[in-house]
């Protein structure tokens, strides 16, 4: 391509080395991006056995956790954590809302289990209406900038994640629970570990 090439090479000009390097690196980078994207798409949600790193959730007004308006996940070590993703526009979420609240009230006195509600892509007025309607008392907050849901790679709402005392994810419920017993079974399993 370059005009400064020696004359004797003129009739048999191959692709210059720099162009070859550009082409090959371009291809490799493109394929790498696609491969990583593909892996992400195929991963599904966070899998049981994975340690959940720290995240923090700012709670709705009127909710608090140990006197603070924010929950830091790292401070929950030593407790069994139930994280429920929900939204006010989600019909199936309403099915399980009362059961989740009942389970929470059952465990709350022991102080060994924490329930956290994360409100996914929701509008605040309707979310508050939902929380009031089902009289939900466990800490609840909006998923600001969808950071937490993106981290868990949730596939939809409702989804509930059960995390043991060591911060390791143990069980995922995709879709709603049909009764309180189901929730308590999972929590008891983790409590008895």
């Amino acid at each position: 391509m370059t005009e400064t090439l020696p004359v004797q090479e003129a009739p048999k000009r191959g692709v210059p080395l720099w162009a070859q390097i550009v082409v090959w690196t371009g291809l490799v980078v493109l394929l790498a991006v696609v491969a990583l994207g593909l892996r992400r798409a195929q991963q599904g949600t966070v899998q049981p056995g994975e340690v959940i790193p720290d995240f923090s959730l700012t709670l709705f007004d009127g909710y608090e956790f140990e006197g603070k308006e924010k929950v830091n996940f790292s401070e929950l070590r030593g407790k069994v954590v139930v994280i429920n993703f929900w939204a006010s526009w989600c019909k199936p979420c309403e099915q399980e809302a009362a059961d989740l609240e009942a389970a929470w009230r059952y465990y709350q006195p022991t102080g060994e289990v924490v329930f956290i509600g994360i409100d996914y892509v929701d509008t605040e007025p309707e979310a508050r209406g939902y929380l009031t309607k089902f009289d939900i008392t466990y800490p609840n907050g909006p998923d600001l900038a969808t950071r937490i849901s993106q981290f868990f790679r949730i596939k939809g709402v409702p989804e509930t994640y059960f995390i043991d005392r060591n911060g390791v994810l143990q069980y995922i419920q995709v879709g709603p629970f049909s009764n309180e017993t189901q929730i308590r079974q999972q929590v008891d399993k983790l409590l008895n570990q």
């Binding site: 939204a87 526009w89 929701d122 509008t123 605040e124 007025p125």
Partner: peptide, 13 residues
């Protein structure tokens, strides 16, 4: 979708 209806109402608000 219901979520989007709610979003639009929020914009209105």
């Amino acid at each position: 979708t219901q979520a989007c209806i709610q979003w639009r109402e929020l914009i209105r608000l």
